[in-house]
Amino acid sequence: MATPEPLLSVRELSVTFPTPRGPVRAVDSLSFDVHRGRTLGIVGESGSGKSVTSMAVLGLHTGAEVTGSITLDGQELVGLPERALNRVRGRRIAMIFQDPLSSLHPYYTVGEQIAEHHRVHFDSRRAQAHRRAVEMLAEVGIPEPARRAGEYPHQFSGGMRQRAMIAMALACEPELLIADEPTTALDVTVQAQILELLARLQQERGLAVVMITHDLGVVARVAHEVLVMYGGRAAEQAPVDDLFATPAHPYTRGLLDSLPRLDDDDDAPLRAIPGSPPSLLDPTPGCAFAPRCPRAASASAEVRLRCSNERPLLGGPSGHPVACHLPAYEGVTS
């Protein structure tokens, strides 16, 4: 299949923060592509580096050392001066966050905030920008948009606020939308509405979407491709069906096995992953998952040593890329 040029291309991205206890590498040599009209799901737990990655794409890490390459439609974003970045941020790449209330300004009406965003990027007139704001609120399914545009964020419910954030994000017709846990703070029935809205807008506009989440159910619902992150690194990358059907990394496998499922009638104890996610303050030289890994634990002493000392590279003899010394592929049981 001839794949078209990706819209966003990230290569060997590393983000290192200076801290009083020494430098912390929150993202380590990460590479991925996002195509127009497609959704990349980035899955990980706290400290996996998934949010740091999205902030790096937007050039929002001041004070951190960002290396590697991030290109949007061929344009390099790493090292771009602030002025040039401002023409990309919010305009070509938009972002929505977990908590819409803390992303909206409490002193301005929702309509004013969307309109201002439009005026900054398009130098549009007040009336025109306001019209655009009302239009966008209507598009994201807010009833009585003209009236609601004159209300303040606290007058909106959680779901409506997230709709307003989406309206703001899409007001400038971006090509890429980064959604960082956009439904985590919402009730499940409202989450379903927002995910449906995002899917519709993506289809209508050919948006590329990066969906960052800890919820494998959300990934299964919306993603085309999935990147699983652990301890700041890519653990596994695969088309969504492959990932769920043949998870090759023991972490992915462990996550899927440990989930209580609605469509499961088995009442045996959950197969929990022992231990906790790693601290980035003292990374291991080997695989970050090795201390919790059942496959490493039952491997030979020689392999165990390799897991704890040698960092596995993303690759693999078959199937999709996986960073593991002991990957399991279809037909291979671990």
Binding site: M160, V188, T189, D215, G217, V219, A220, F244
Partner: peptide, 27 residues
């Protein structure tokens, strides 16, 4: 019924096959 149908399943094929009841509005 709506609550159960809104829960995303960690299974892409099941997700596509599913008929969801999407509630209107907020609680």
């Amino acid at each position: 019924q709506a609550l159960l149908s809104a829960v995303p399943l960690p299974d892409p094929a099941a997700e596509r096959a599913r008929e969801r009841i999407t509630l209107l509005g907020d609680p």
